[in-house]
Amino acid sequence: MDKFQEAFDEIIEKDLKVEPRDWMPEEYRKTLIRQVSQHAHSEVIGMQPEGNWLLRAPSLRAKQVLLAKIQDEAGHGLYLYSVAETLGISRAETIEQLHQGKAKYSSIFNYPTLTWADIGAVGWLVDGAAIINQVSLQRTSYGPYSRAMVKICKEESFHQRQGYEIMCQMAFGTPEQKEMAQDALNRFWEPSLMMFGPHDADSVHKGQSMAWKIKRESNDHLRQRFIDRTVAQAEYLGLTIPDPNLKFNEETGHYETSPFNWDEFWNVVKGNGPCNTQRLDHHKRAHENGAWVREAAAAYAAKTENKVA
């Protein structure tokens, strides 16, 4: 074994961090680029379903909170694009891959936010699931990714609460509001659980990712943690989890659920969900509409900035 591989293995073995200039196996780099860019795009595309209600937020408070939250998602996208850049891929390239359909983003954002209660459900369930995943990723073996996760987790601590606060207002509001809350839970429950990815037995990249400590806990493990935490939160709201087979297993200490509709999951991943085209088109359009602005900024800088080197 060559000395580079040996040094890398030692970093992983001893739970140290791999840094950008350290030697790393090409597959490790590729796996990270795929995961980090998908994560970055998820933050950025995730701005859209929430942005759908930004201009209709029903109070000044809700408006400011939602805008601050979406703004955070943009910032988290930036942190993650920056991590991808340390792996040798520029932001422009990463965005290009998104536009060409080569890079993915979390499939959950292909679902529409139909009512204001959906903004509650997205914060409570979608951010809730994302946070469980991101807390686990704070211990990922790639230094810049790990540091980005620490910062993101810190900033996102208010996101899930914001969502749950809306769920409380809706669930304890008028009958119409409660109905909207239940409907939002019905539609977002299963897609949120599938955010953690395929079952461990069916997960393509799982083995190597775990061995390299890019991923620290398995999909099923994280998903179970989310379910166990969320059921009681739904009960407090007086809402029903839309799964007739949901039950607590005294022996394992965990909730059990019905099998998920993986056919739908894969079909949405493939591009056939309710909003896939819309989301991508929105991003492309904003990018294209901004081209002349970026060109102007570049031209102005070329005229006015002191040339360095």
Binding site: V44, L67, I70, A74, Y81, A286
Partner: peptide, 20 residues
């Protein structure tokens, strides 16, 4: 606020959100 997710690039998107 309409600029949110429609900015010419992400940093400017964030700047406009701050102004809003």
């Amino acid at each position: 606020a309409e600029l949110c997710s429609n900015g010419p690039f992400l940093e400017e998107d964030i700047a406009q959100s701050n102004i809003s």
